[in-house]
Design a protein around this nucleic acid. Structure first.
Length: 124
DNA sequence: GCATTGACGAAGG
DNA sequence: CCCTTCGCCAATG
């Protein structure tokens, strides 16, 4: 048959770009004074096993014109592992402090209290 | 084209 | 309780 125009040839290609956009969209919805984790975002996007990609997306967020509050995204331990990627190593800490979030030893105090769960907040 | 890395996370020793 | 290993997937060398 001439129907051998298989669509599964290479139909998946720009999915990564969508993934990045998705991450940005979620992060931008984080309200002030709240934080979330890479894993939470990844889980919300359905790729909880790929939390690393969320971090990678954040890296690309720097070149985004829109401001992405990456300082509100930390690892599941509440640790500011990404502070070294900001303009200055203290920027992330100060931004959080401005939102009344206390940081000690590169870790957010009462992380669970400030935790912003996309599953709950975004209506899921 | 293969090996290494990376802003994570869970599991195992 | 601390450290190591593995999985995940994409980018980079």
């Amino acid at each position: 048959m001439a129907q051998e125009k298989q669509i599964n040839e290479k139909s998946k290609k720009k999915e990564t770009f969508t993934f990045f956009e998705d991450v940005f969209a979620v992060v931008r919805q984080i309200p002030k004074g709240r934080v979330t984790s890479y894993g939470a975002i990844a889980a919300y996007l359905g790729t909880k096993l790929s939390a690393r990609m969320v971090g990678w997306a954040m890296n690309a967020a720097h070149q985004q014109t829109d401001k992405v509050p990456a300082h509100r995204v930390v690892n599941r331990n509440g640790m500011l592992t990404g502070k070294h990627h900001f303009a200055t190593p203290t920027l992330m800490e100060e931004l959080l402090l401005k939102e009344k979030i206390k940081v000690k030893e590169e870790t957010i105090i009462d992380f669970e209290k400030y935790f912003w769960d996309p599953f709950i907040e975004l209506g899921m």
